[in-house]
């Protein structure tokens, strides 16, 4: 099963390679990885998307925790959380297809950030399902190139659980 794991680490050089060599050395796989500094510049946040049965995920979180530079590990899959990824996608917009593509982009709330006679670059954010759906819809028009970020995730505030909550579409 797919798991999204959040890791708070010391913002030091070499930490990323400690984490990636842990995964490769133990045969765990990384589907995506996103890293950036947090509000505290001494700490970085990593979001790792990985796959495995219960036992493997337990080992992954324990092994991550064992690294000296790892401060905290959260398996988002066990919490109420939101996820987002961003994607740039270059799609053919020749001739009559142009308007159709623009329509699709609008429906998915993407943004055209570059447009030429032959193609457009679209920027889009969303959870994995939305991004995949967007790709599927554009496929028949001719996708030239895709560049995607890793997934980032955040746990929802527990207290707001029973209240009304704004949900981004």
């Amino acid at each position: 099963m797919k798991h999204i794991i959040g890791v708070l680490v010391e913002n030091e050089f070499g930490v990323l390679s400690r984490i990636s060599s842990l995964f490769s050395g133990r045969g765990f796989n990384i589907e995506s990885l996103a890293v950036a500094e947090t509000e505290d510049p001494s700490i970085s946040h990593m979001t790792i998307v990985t796959r495995g049965d219960e036992q493997i995920i337990e080992q992954i979180t324990k092994q991550l925790n064992k690294l000296i530079n790892v401060i905290k590990v959260v398996d988002f899959t066990e919490t109420d959380h939101v996820t987002r990824g961003m994607m740039l996608i270059k799609v053919a917009v020749e001739g009559s297809k142009r308007l159709e593509v623009l329509k699709v982009v609008e429906i998915f709330r993407g943004r055209i950030i570059d447009l030429s006679a032959k193609s457009a670059i679209v920027e889009i954010t969303g959870d994995e399902g939305k991004l995949q759906a967007f790709i599927d819809v554009l496929l028949p028009y001719g996708i030239r190139e895709i560049s995607r970020t890793g997934v980032v995730a955040m746990t929802r505030e527990a207290k707001t659980k029973n209240r009304m909550r704004l949900r981004a579409v």
Binding site: Q55, E58, Q59, K62, Q63, K66
Partner: peptide, 8 residues
Amino acid sequence: IDPTSISK
């Protein structure tokens, strides 16, 4: 003492 040893 090492949690990773348990249930490995």
